[in-house]
């Protein structure tokens, strides 16, 4: 035998159900927020440290970060240069990253991440393999861009991701925007940089 339910019952039933579900989710979300934020901040510090070749775990990230990185107005400085944040959009959602530049605006380290690019295609920007391609490239007179069959001797060109054209375009746009925002930063920071000792040796190497 089947019970029948009136329309009023169905409306009230679904309304109550949804409100109860929303209440539970709100409580959990609010109570777990501090832990999640802590994880996200640790991850951001890990990413920044990675650009200067420091491998941090989630636990010692804060400590190493305090040791190596100084926060400036919208960017970061380390012993030997600056780290600029990158923010942009990929195909499905936000993409972001950090570029570490030395005094001659040469990339010494890069790291990228994304919210929801296609795994195996656009999602490849989060791999070390992709980030490695930026090392030695320059951000002085123009921004780095991604290109198909990139010319590896060109200091402003990096190989794009096959199958990830939209994401690659997003990375190019993100780099162009960061270049506009932070143009000339690495040479300015040289003057204010307190770590003269290492910057001298670095310049000699470049000569």
């Amino acid at each position: 035998m089947k019970k029948t339910f009136s329309n009023t019952y169905i409306f009230i039933y679904s309304a109550v159900l949804v409100v109860v579900a929303a209440l539970i989710l709100t409580v959990v979300s609010v109570s777990l927020k501090p832990l999640q934020t802590k994880n996200q901040q640790a991850e951001q510090k890990q990413m920044i440290l990675k650009t200067i070749g420091v491998d941090a775990t989630r636990d010692n990230a804060a400590e190493l970060y305090a040791k190596h990185i100084t926060e400036a107005d919208g960017y970061y400085t380390f012993d030997g240069g600056v780290i600029i944040p990158l923010k942009g959009t990929g195909l499905w959602g936000p993409i972001w990253g950090y570029l570490a530049l030395d005094e001659s605006s040469t990339v010494v380290g890069a790291v990228f991440d994304h919210k929801g690019e296609t795994p195996g295609l656009g999602g490849e920007i989060a791999t070390d393999k992709f980030a490695q391609r930026f090392i030695g490239k320059k951000m002085d007179t123009q921004a780095i861009h991604l290109a198909k069959n990139a010319d590896h001797s060109n200091p402003y060109e990096v190989d794009a991701i096959s199958g990830g054209t939209m994401t690659s375009n997003g990375v190019t746009a993100m780099l162009a925007k960061a270049f506009e925002d932070y143009k000339g930063l690495s040479s300015n920071s040289r003057i204010s940089s307190s770590s003269r000792d290492t910057s001298n040796t670095r310049e000699e190497v470049q000569l």
């Binding site: 339910f5 679904s14 539970i24 777990l32 996200q40």
Partner: peptide, 30 residues
């Protein structure tokens, strides 16, 4: 559960649980 909306009700229950699991994972095994 009214049979006419039973799939929706099941979905609400399942998705609430899944979001809970997701939140817990994000907090403890990021």
């Amino acid at each position: 559960i009214p049979p006419r909306i039973r799939i929706i009700v099941q979905l609400v229950v399942v998705s609430t649980l899944v979001v809970l699991v997701d939140q817990v994972l994000k907090a403890y095994v990021y």
